[in-house]
């Protein structure tokens, strides 16, 4: 009797498993996890071109400077995961002469490399690729101007203030502010003295800053 009972129970379990596998074998289409579309920063998504993030990473995928405009990535770890994934995916491509492009988690990522620096700009998947690419080119060229052609990680870190100001001048809260590299670099480099400030307050460092600005200007005019 007990044996019979056990068998019956086993049988139910067995059929349970069989049904499970038959349910699984319906081969339902993979539905990608629906990402929350409540991007407060990107409310204008529908009509206004927008940028989700700008990344400047080194040749090992570490951050040099990054700026996120979308709350698609809420935590630092999700940001780092995104950076790692994008870096790994693009690492082996040759994006030195021309900017390259890829799709990644429903985003368009346009990227370009110089020495040991990797530049990325991300936009939504229904964004005009060429607009994203223009933003990247603006960023890339502006950094080139600001670092006087020495575009590498060391130089970038030593002039991190310029890089951060540069990011600030390109995009404001996801909206493109400026894409012309000369204008961006010009705005960042205008470390001139406040005209209202008395001369006596000028320090050596300010004088140096002025000199630097003149140098940049002369570079820009070339």
């Amino acid at each position: 009797m007990m044996e019979h009972l056990a068998l019956e129970f086993r049988n139910i379990q067995d059929r349970y498993c069989t049904v499970c596998s038959s349910v699984a074998s319906e081969f339902a289409p993979k539905t990608k996890a629906h990402k929350s579309s409540t991007d407060n920063n990107l409310y204008q998504m529908e009509s206004c071109p927008s940028v989700k993030n700008i990344l400047l990473l080194d040749s090992e995928g570490n951050r040099v400077a990054v700026k996120y405009y979308s709350d698609e990535w809420q935590t630092n770890s999700s940001k780092e995961a995104f950076e790692k994934a994008v870096f790994t995916k693009t690492q082996k491509t040759n994006a030195r002469a021309e900017a390259e492009i890829t799709m990644f988690e429903n985003n368009i990522v346009v990227y370009k490399f110089a020495q040991d620096l990797h530049f990325f700009v991300t936009g939504g998947d229904d964004e005009n690729e060429l607009i994203i690419s223009t933003v990247l080119q603006g960023f890339f060229d502006a950094v080139g101007l600001l670092l006087r052609g020495n575009v590498d990680k060391k130089e970038a870190l030593e002039n991190l203030d310029l890089i951060l100001l540069c990011l600030d001048e390109i995009v404001d809260g996801g909206i493109i502010l400026e894409t012309d590299a000369n204008v961006i670099a010009g705005k960042v480099a205008s470390h001139s003295i406040d005209s209202g400030a008395p001369l006596s307050e000028q320090t050596i460092s300010q004088a140096l800053a002025t000199a630097r600005e003149h140098l940049t200007r002369s570079l820009l005019n070339v």
Partner: peptide, 15 residues
Amino acid sequence: AKDIGLRRMVYLIIK
């Protein structure tokens, strides 16, 4: 401070 460069950095850090 009247230094423009510094003021720009002040703006950044406030944001």
